[in-house]
Design a protein around this nucleic acid. Structure first.
Length: 637
RNA sequence: GCUCCCGUAGCUCAACGGACAGAGCAACUGACUUCUAAUCAGUAGGCUGGGGGUUCGAUUCCCUCCGGGAGCGCCA
């Protein structure tokens, strides 16, 4: 559609040139809200009114008389609403164009992109907050791939932090387990889920145990046994669990980057040298920060401590080092080895300072997306500032993007349903922040399980003829569809106040609605068997459609044609909900159409062919949108 | 105190500065001997938090006030 509108803009500019000085880029088309305004619209008369000191309506009238009947694809031109220039497309030409370009995808681009997402601390099971992150990150990565970029998906593993020490201390000293016993735990993620909350409560109540925990943390950092071995075992097993859970909803990673390796390979020292050379990192002159090295954050005029007065690095240091590596600010490389494989054999690589025999087939990124919730904005903004300072007149825009989104919280009702403690104060809050530390959260695996059980009930009701395993497969696909759509459909800047009632819904604005739409569409095309595809080439005449059908028919075509614009603007706005909204609107329009007009049973061959062509176009587009969101398409439901 | 975000129908949310502010849920009324009713059609529901401004045009941009949230550590 972009190619088409660009061509139209060029032609219009050419025709108007004798009387109106217009740049091609000023001729922007939108799809008007109603077919009675035509198919494409531009506000050109408004734009020129100011410049020419004339009324928009006069300019518009003149343009209509110049453009009327000038070139065929823009069949009609009219003026409405005081200055909207509305065009009606040649229906036959437009339909043919869409059929011919049906499988066209955006051209490949060479800007390499790294998307970092998920990045869950490996000391407990994943929860709904992490699911939002992973679903957004995965759809972001898929969208970028669809638009033609080479994309590598990285998952950052903070395996040296205090949270891992918390649970190691808990296992060794609260539960008094031996390392051998710990290695026999069969579901560590779930056990640690409970334990982490317990440890956190204990530590905040008892300063002595906090000291003991700190000794454990130090032991891990100094690679002393048994603490180090236990920490390594735990973080690896929990990480495997996260990867397995995410794989179950269609989310995959190319590379795991472990914080331990960044520390062992001393990447931060290299990053620090670069920053010091450029004066970005410097010794603070603030008496309170004597002996510290800091970065000045301009937006809030604050000095952020990066190296403490005792010479150790703060949290942001590792993130800076990691980011520098991502964008190739220094040439040192990690050793890589295989961490695990997906069912189809695809390998997930991990960094490993001890060495590895795998190579990573992906160079430094020209652009980095960090999918991290809004609470990390402060640090992420500092990193963005540093990267821009290092390359002030860098071509190609910002190399570092904090792909920010709001947190997931629980409604008070949800907390009550989970039988978690709820203070009187929390009772009146609009929502309660999710916290793995406090154990206030819905575990990802539990939510997926509940969704599967719920969808299984519906599947059983509707498909009694299917065997057990087919019904279960479908139930799982529907559960995944419901979950992934739910995590994408909200504006990224909106807090999701999680509630089981909304999340377990399968009707209306939900993933299953989209799935159902495509399943039905597919089942019609299946009735036509292989014959269906041949209709792409059939010469049809859409002017044969009755006006009511024609309006709906072209409504759908215009929405389809606008798809890539919607994907691009979702990325520009850093808000993927646009993709979900677009898919939902498309399904609504299709379901309405489908309800009114038979396809297979239509006796008139021309109408039948037209409707089949529409179905093929919707299938192509909708299938793509569902793929972008990671929503599977069952064979029936 | 400083920085950022949010406020739209009873509830949950849409609307590149554009045309009469749209959906879903809930409520009510209808449509299955018909390509899947996880669907569709219809009714009802709005001073888009208040007040100024910019604009041909403001839910959208600017200012201000009110209400809600998050972040601001030599924690991670």
């Amino acid at each position: 559609m972009k190619a088409l509108t660009r061509e139209y803009a060029a032609r219009i500019r050419e025709y108007l040139e004798p009387e109106f000085a217009v740049a091609e880029s000023e001729i922007q088309f939108t799809i008007p809200p109603n077919r009675r305004y035509g198919d494409l619209s531009t506000t050109l008369p408004f734009v020129l009114a100011k410049r020419m000191q004339k009324k928009p309506i006069e300019i518009g009238r003149r343009m209509v008389s110049i453009l009327s009947g000038r070139f065929a694809p823009m069949a009609e031109v009219s003026l409405a609403g005081g200055g909207f220039l509305n065009f009606t497309l040649d229906r036959r030409h437009f339909l043919r164009y869409l059929l011919d370009t049906r499988e066209r995808r955006p051209a490949a681009r060479d800007k390499r992109i790294v998307v970092e997402h998920t990045s869950i601390n490996p000391n407990k099971a994943a929860h709904i907050g992490h699911l939002r992150n992973a679903c957004l990150g995965d759809t972001l990565a898929r969208s970028l791939k669809y638009l033609g970029y080479p994309v590598e998906v990285q998952n950052y593993i903070d395996d040296t932090g205090i949270q891992v020490a918390d649970v190691v201390w808990g296992l060794l000293h609260m539960l008094r387990m031996s390392p051998e016993e710990i290695c026999r735990i069969d579901d560590p993620a779930a056990l640690l889920w409970e334990l982490y909350a317990k440890v956190s409560r204990h530590l905040s109540a008892d300063p002595e145990s906090e000291k003991a925990r700190n000794r454990v943390h130090q032991a891990i950092e100094e690679r002393r046994e048994p603490e180090y071995g236990v920490a390594d075992w735990i973080s690896s097993r929990v990480l495997e669990d996260h990867i397995r859970v995410m794989a179950s909803i269609g989310i995959r990673y190319d590379l795991l980057v472990r914080e331990r390796d960044i520390i062992e390979l001393d990447f931060f020292a290299r990053a620090a040298r670069i920053m010091e050379q450029k004066g970005i990192l410097y010794a603070s002159s603030d008496p309170e920060k004597q002996g510290c090295k800091v970065i000045h954050y301009r937006h809030e005029d604050l000095e952020k401590v990066v190296i403490r007065s005792n010479g150790t690095a703060t949290y942001i240091a590792k993130d800076l080092a990691y980011t520098f590596w991502k964008v190739g600010r220094f040439s040192e490389e990690f050793p890589f080895r295989e961490f695990c494989r997906y069912d189809d054999g695809r390998v997930v690589l991990t960094t490993d300072f001890r060495g590895g025999d795998e190579t990573r087939d992906f160079g430094p990124a020209q652009r980095v997306f960090n999918v991290i919730d809004v609470r990390q904005s402060y640090l992420q903004n500092i990193i963005a500032q540093v990267l821009e300072d290092l390359d002030p007149d860098g071509a190609g825009g910002h190399p570092f993007v904090h792909f920010s989104y709001e947190m997931v919280a629980l409604t008070p009702r949800c907390v009550r349903e989970l039988e978690l403690p709820l203070s009187a104060e929390d009772e009146n809050k609009p929502w309660i922040e999710v916290s793995g530390r406090k154990g206030i959260a819905v575990k990802a695996s539990d939510l997926i399980e509940q969704l599967t059980v719920r969808s299984r009930e519906e599947v059983d009701k509707r498909n009694p003829d299917l065997d057990e395993s087919s019904r279960q497969d479908i139930a799982v696909q529907i559960a995944v569809g419901a979950l992934r759509y739910f995590m994408i459909k909200f504006n990224a800047r909106a807090v999701i106040a999680f509630d089981f009632k909304d999340a377990l819904a399968f009707e209306g604005d939900t993933g299953p609605y989209l799935q159902y739409t495509l399943v039905r569409l597919n089942s019609i095309l299946r009735k036509l068997d292989r014959e269906a595809e041949t209709f792409v080439r059939t010469d049809t005449d859409p002017t044969r459609l009755e006006p009511a059908e024609s309006a709906e028919f072209f409504d759908l075509l215009l929405q389809l044609a606008d798809g890539d614009n919607r994907i691009e603007s979702a990325l520009e706005n850093q808000d993927l909900s646009g993709i979900a909204n677009h898919a939902f609107a498309l399904c609504q329009a299709f379901n309405r159409y489908y309800h009114g007009y038979p396809v297979v049973n239509e006796p008139d061959p021309m109408l039948r062919s037209l409707r089949i062509q529409l179905l093929l176009l919707v299938r192509e587009r909708l299938g793509r949108l569902l793929w972008l969101m990671g929503i599977p398409v069952p064979t029936r439901m």
